[in-house]
Structures are given as structure tokens and as C-alpha cells.
């Protein structure tokens, strides 16, 4: 497949935004159970929600560049019964709305306790809004990944690992972002977030490696024989039915050399997993290093790596229609 940059930016930006929101809410839950010091509503939760919304909004804007008719984008909410893309189109704005409400509730101090839990803890509206947003956040991960995982003949994508990896990579990216954000807004928390970022990045590394190993061992179900229905071991295409290429030759081939494909894999493995893990581990070992500079650099580096990772995710998939376009006449 030819990777579309609009989709690469959409999936990586909303992944980081979703992860950041999850990090904020995790922090609030920890504080709720007195495991972490409580943070300022405005400068931490509301500001953090704004950063999260900026990433989500950036992703949403990027997605419009993928459309031939962006002015008709509203129609795409229609087929939510069957289409994962349609479901994503509904869940993304819903999630953004809930993050806005969550951030707004923190900003305006809507923390009048609604009811009391047995332990004497007071549940306020922000906690409820955050829980709903968390649910939507995971639904969004599933919707985004299922857009690709539901296509059964794109065998590289048709696996639960796709959903797992989208969730873990988004979470890892968001928690690294949260650690960088907290280095500015909540000086007690970078260590907490960096710890979670290490766990999520390590899990994402496992998941992504598993999918790389799986995809390297895949045997394509379709062949030229099933494509044209002639059972002969030796079939060569002589003409694809077009001289100057067509949509089919542009959309489904990434057009990069084998050397490039070989190089990008270690490149993203290093920048998404190895280097960020090393930097975060160094920071954990020596907390004085866990400053905004190191953590921001880690986030930016990992984000750039995720762009490469997502590029590779799309480029790696071999569409069966390519069997009809094996030569240029």
C-alpha cells in the first residue's frame, strides 16, 4: 500500500492525544486514592486537556486532507452499523467533546462532590467525565485500528495485534508526552509518568515485534493462479491494461526500494523503542535528569519514529490487487 501522510499524521497525533488524556486521568485516579499528591486543576488537568485536544484536533485536521470531498465529511457518520471508519468518525469528536468537558470541569472548578464512596472519598463530576472519556478513548483506539484490522485480505493488518499495537503505541507516546508536560506543570510527577511510559513502551515493543515476526512469516492466500483462475505454475503478466499507470498502480504500491524498506524497520525500532527506553531509564536512575528538555526530546524523537513506524505499517501490507499489476507495459 502507498502510505498516505494524512492518515499517518491522523493516527499518530490522535494516539498521542489519547495517551496524554489517559495519563492525566491515571494521575487523577492515583491522586483520588492518595497515591500521588493532588495537582492543580487549572495548570495541570485543564492545561493538559488542552494539549491533548490540540493533538486530537491536529489529527482531525490531518484526516480531512485524505478526503476528496472534505465538505461532505459529515456524511461519513451514516454507516456506523457496518463501517469502522464511520464509527471512528463518530467516536473521535465524541471523545474530543468529553476531553473538552473534562478539561472545562477542571478549569471552572466543578468539583462539588456528587456522592461519597465507602472509604470517605468524594466523587466529583471531573472523575465521572474522565471515566466516560476513558471509555471513549479506548473505543477510539479500537475503531482506528479496526479500520485496518477488519480488511481480511490485507493479511498483514488482519490480526488482533493491530488493535493491541495501536493502543499500546498511542499509550506509550501519550505517557511520554505526559511526562514532558508534567516536567513543566507538575514537578512531582515526571518520574511517575516516565515509569508508566517505560512500561507501555516496552509492552508496545513486544507487540510490534510480535506483529513484525508474524508478518514476516505470512504466506499470501492469493496468487496469480487464483487471481485469473488459471492453474499453471508459470504465469507471467505482460500488460496491466494501461500504459502510463493507473489509480491501481499508484495507490497500492509504496514505490520505495528494498534497501529503503530494510532500513526503515531498524530505524523506527530504534527511535520508537530503544532510544526512548534508554533515555527514560537513564532519567529514572538519575531523577535530576528528568527535566523538560530530556523528556520533550524523548517525545519528539519517539513521535518522529512513530511516523516511520506508521509509514512502514501501511507500506508493509501487500494488497492482493497487486497480482493484477505485476508489470509495466
Amino acid at each position: 500500500m502507498r502510505p498516505a501522510f494524512s492518515v499517518i499524521f491522523l493516527t499518530t497525533l490522535i494516539g498521542a492525544g489519547q495517551g496524554l488524556f489517559l495519563a492525566l486521568y491515571t494521575g487523577q485516579l492515583y491522586a483520588f486514592f492518595d497515591l500521588l499528591p493532588a495537582q492543580d486543576s487549572r495548570s495541570f488537568y485543564a492545561a493538559g486537556s488542552a494539549v491533548s485536544l490540540a493533538f486530537l484536533g491536529g489529527g482531525l485536521i490531518a484526516s480531512f486532507f485524505h478526503l476528496g470531498h472534505p465538505e461532505r465529511a459529515w456524511r461519513s457518520a451514516a454507516q456506523w452499523r457496518t463501517s469502522w471508519l464511520s464509527r471512528e468518525v463518530i467516536v473521535l469528536p465524541a471523545f474530543m467533546g468529553m476531553v473538552l468537558l473534562y478539561g472545562g470541569a477542571h478549569w471552572f472548578g466543578w468539583n462539588t462532590p456528587l456522592f461519597e464512596l465507602p472509604g470517605g472519598r468524594h466523587v466529583d463530576p471531573t472523575l465521572i467525565l474522565g471515566a466516560v472519556a476513558t471509555l471513549l478513548c479506548f473505543m477510539l483506539f479500537v475503531c482506528t485500528a479496526m479500520i485496518y484490522a477488519c480488511l481480511r485480505f490485507l493479511q498483514e493488518w488482519h490480526t488482533p495485534l493491530t488493535v493491541i499495537n495501536y493502543t499500546l503505541l498511542g499509550g506509550a507516546s501519550g505517557f511520554v508526552l505526559a511526562s514532558a508536560f508534567s516536567a513543566i506543570a507538575a514537578p512531582q510527577l515526571p518520574g511517575f509518568y516516565a515509569g508508566w511510559a517505560i512500561i507501555l513502551t516496552a509492552l508496545a515493543f513486544l507487540g510490534r515485534t510480535a506483529s513484525l515476526v508474524r508478518n514476516a512469516r505470512l504466506r499470501p492466500k492469493s496468487s496469480t493462479r487464483t487471481a485469473i483462475g488459471i492453474k499453471h505454475p508459470h504465469i507471467v503478466q505482460k500488460s496491466p491494461g494501461a500504459m502510463g499507470g493507473s489509480f491501481n498502480t499508484r495507490e497500492f504500491f509504496h514505490g520505495k526500494s528494498r534497501a529503503f524498506m530494510r532500513a526503515i524497520k531498524p530505524a523506527f525500532l530504534l527511535t520508537v523503542f530503544v532510544i526512548p527506553l534508554t533515555l527514560l531509564a537513564m532519567g529514572m536512575a538519575n531523577p535530576s535528569m528528568l527535566g523538560a528538555a530530556l523528556l520533550s526530546a524523548t517525545f519528539i524523537l519517539q513521535y518522529l519514529g512513530l511516523l516511520a513506524e506508521r509509514w512502514f505499517f501501511f507500506a508493509e501490507a501487500k494488497h492482493p490487487q497487486n497480482l493484477y499489476y505485476q508489470c509495466v507495459s
Binding site: L67, H69, A73, S76, S83, L151, Q321
Partner: peptide
Amino acid sequence: KCIGCKYCSWACPYGAREI
């Protein structure tokens, strides 16, 4: 009604759709 997202062309194993 088509918004030109090309998702259907990804979902066709035969490459029968062209934008």
C-alpha cells in the same frame, strides 16, 4: 455521497475501483 476516502478501494481484493 462519496467523500473520496478510497477506503472501498482498499477493501476490494480485485482492484476494481478507481478514483
